[in-house]
């Protein structure tokens, strides 16, 4: 059964990386980022931007505890994450949610069963526990009508929405989203930016608690007015940028790649 831990008070470090070396999730011998020093405090909303294959997804995978740092130390909610799948680690893991790029739903389960899986696994099968929560999350994603479909019968954006609902099922404190805006039209992109902002402010679907958020992106622009903290990953480095008013004033080529000059100077 689920062991409920009280949420971390605002300002408490939730993610702490010290001199962390991040390797590729798919190719563990390949170093993606070096000497990452990063602290995310409870209640903060981070956007980490980088180009394709810059290592931002691997950074998120490490933050989610899917893999361990090649070197350095990583503390999640004040506890050092160790390798392997242990019960202590699971208790920490349940306090965070990760929305994968594309959703990464279990292909043999329908959309509603994908959402129900963590609830049924950790809370038991009591319909009173599971069904209302699944209905609430389906309404939240606006996909109730397609609840009985399999993931491959809906488009990638909807799979990702179900991935968000699944990540929120157990009401996590920390939510990590891997490039949620990739390949979306403006309407769907607006749904995501509005929804993530609402989650940061405290959405009823998570009982109004302000979530700590980390979003990775190919461009800083969509999140410029939404996030509170920004960082960039490039050339194996993690660079914290601070708030937009403190971003480099001159035309840095690497910043240009992630944020057009015209928009940056607005």
């Amino acid at each position: 059964m689920l062991d409920l831990t009280p949420p971390a008070p605002p300002g408490t470090p939730v993610v702490e990386m010290r001199d962390v070396v991040v390797t590729s999730l798919r190719h563990p011998d390949e170093v993606m980022l070096q000497n990452v020093n990063w602290t995310v405090a409870a209640g903060e909303f981070w956007t980490v931007a980088g180009l394709l294959r810059s290592g931002k997804s691997d950074l998120l995978a490490l933050a989610a505890g899917i893999m361990s740092p090649a070197s350095g130390s990583y503390h999640l909610f004040g506890n050092e994450l160790t390798a392997g799948f242990e019960h202590e680690r699971m208790a920490l893991q349940l306090r965070l949610g990760l929305v994968f790029d594309g959703g990464q739903l279990l292909h043999h389960l329908t959309l509603e069963h994908n959402i129900a899986l963590p609830l049924r696994y950790h809370l038991g099968d009591a319909k009173a526990n599971v069904e209302p929560r699944v209905r609430e999350l389906l309404e939240f994603t606006e996909l109730s009508r397609w609840a009985h479909r399999l993931p491959n019968q809906v488009n990638r954006n909807w799979q990702q929405r179900i991935g968000l609902a699944r990540a929120l099922a157990l009401k996590p404190e920390l939510l990590l989203l891997d490039t949620p805006l990739t390949g979306l039209d403006p309407k769907d992109a607006a749904w995501w930016t509005d929804t993530v902002s609402a989650l940061a402010a405290g959405h009823p679907v998570v009982d109004g608690h302000r979530l700590t958020l980390v979003v990775t992106a190919d461009s800083l622009e969509p999140w410029r007015q939404r996030a509170t903290h920004f960082a960039v990953v490039r050339e194996r480095q993690f660079i914290a940028l601070g708030p937009p008013e403190r971003w480099p004033a001159r035309n840095e080529p690497w910043l240009e790649e992630l944020l057009p000059t015209s928009k940056r100077n607005h």
Partner: peptide
């Protein structure tokens, strides 16, 4: 089935949900 699930990242998805893939 399992090879496809592995290739599609479902193992990682289970780990994040606190479900032991084994």
């Amino acid at each position: 089935e399992l090879g496809t699930a592995r290739a599609l990242g479902e193992v990682e998805a289970l780990e994040v949900l606190g479900i032991d893939p084994i």
